[in-house]
């Protein structure tokens, strides 16, 4: 086990260095001199230009700039945003809970609905239920979620006036963040109605973000379940006359869930990409929107640091999934 972890970490480190080089190189490739960009229509003198370049460190050899950047990262310094001049890491940490809250809710929703649907569809293979679920799942899987979000807004916010259009909580409530999770903070604040408000703001974005993972998980659970159900040991159990519920619940399910766990883990990347669109549509103050805004503002250091931080999160989650996979799958020995 330990050896396995070390081996994985050994792979992770060169990947991380590669990721950092790419993130760093990208930003140097972005068109337009950042100093000129900041000045806009205003003309700045060559001296001032040189001074600013020097202050921002753009005048040094590229290798030195990179090593400097890498050195900073090790100590948790991802540089300062060109636009806000605040540390990239602290902006990231301030916004990350919003994305995390949304992602956790979405993945929970996807698992809670997707796994049972997949199991039932597999057990009742070929029935109208199976066909219906799989049909809907394929539609969900093919969904342009940015459009799906707009449709939900039109219907639930526009026509029915049930849900708010954007943000995390009504402006009427105000309390300092404790955990950064609005659902928990609103409960801690003790203000009546705050939790309800936070919840009503969360519903539509969660549904939108959960759509694709839900479809994938339902499909995956079904096919994993089908495979397991055709295995010899399940057939033996059935032949022995064990009640079907016991066969499915005890024998089949446990083994079918193994590939499903991997699938769920793989959805993290999907969630991050989905968060970009979902947060943009619902003005959700998280890192997806932050990244999109920064790309448009040409906030080089934020794009660079954000790419890197997100990649790190995805790599770590993938590692955890692999470890978890090993723990629940007795067939894998390290």
């Amino acid at each position: 086990m330990l050896q396995f972890l070390f081996r994985r970490l050994a792979v992770l480190i060169p990947t991380f260095v590669g990721v950092s080089i790419i993130a760093f190189a990208f930003i140097r490739l972005l068109p337009g001199d950042p100093v000129q960009m900041m000045a806009g229509e205003r003309v700045i003198s060559p001296e001032r230009h040189a001074e600013l370049s020097q202050q921002l460190g753009f005048d040094r050899p590229i290798v030195v700039q990179y090593l400097d950047y890498l050195g900073g990262i090790v100590t948790g310094d991802f540089g300062n945003s060109i636009v806000t001049k605040r540390p990239v890491l602290s902006e990231f940490l301030a916004l990350f809970p919003a994305t995390l809250e949304l992602s956790i809710c979405a993945i929970l929703l996807a698992v809670i609905i997707g796994v049972p649907l997949g199991i039932i569809a597999a057990v009742k293979r070929g029935s109208w239920f199976d066909q219906g679920v799989m049909g809907v799942a394929l539609v969900g899987y093919s969904m342009p979620i940015f459009w799906w979000g707009l449709l939900l807004i039109i219907f639930f916010s526009g026509v029915l006036q049930l849900t708010p259009v954007s943000g995390r909580i009504s402006l009427m409530y105000f309390f300092p963040p404790v955990t950064g999770f609005m659902l928990i903070d609103s409960l801690l604040s003790g203000q009546s109605g705050a939790f309800k408000s936070a919840l009503s703001h969360l519903i539509l974005p969660t549904v939108v973000l959960a759509t694709i993972p839900l479809a994938v998980i339902a499909r995956q659970t079904r096919s994993a379940m089908l495979e397991v159900l055709s295995e010899d040991y399940v057939r033996t159990a059935r032949a022995k006359g064990l009640p079907p519920r016991r066969v499915i619940g005890l024998h089949a399910l446990r083994n079918a869930l193994i590939p499903v766990v991997t699938t769920i883990g793989l959805q993290i990347g999907v969630l991050m990409a989905g968060a970009i669109l979902t947060e943009t549509i619902f003005s959700w103050p998280g890192i997806g929107k932050w990244m999109v805004d920064s790309v448009f503002r040409r906030d080089y250091t934020v794009v660079q640091g954000g790419l890197l931080l997100i990649a790190i999160i995805i790599m770590v989650v993938n590692l955890l999934v692999d470890v978890l996979y090993g723990l629940i799958n007795p067939r894998i020995r390290y």
Partner: peptide, 24 residues
């Protein structure tokens, strides 16, 4: 394969977004 791992470490849409920002 390391190179592919690196590309896969980024959410695809985010990577594409940044790439397009670079290319125009």
């Amino acid at each position: 394969m390391r190179l592919m791992d690196i590309i896969l470490a980024f959410p695809s849409l985010l990577l594409a977004l940044v790439l397009v920002a670079i290319l125009g």
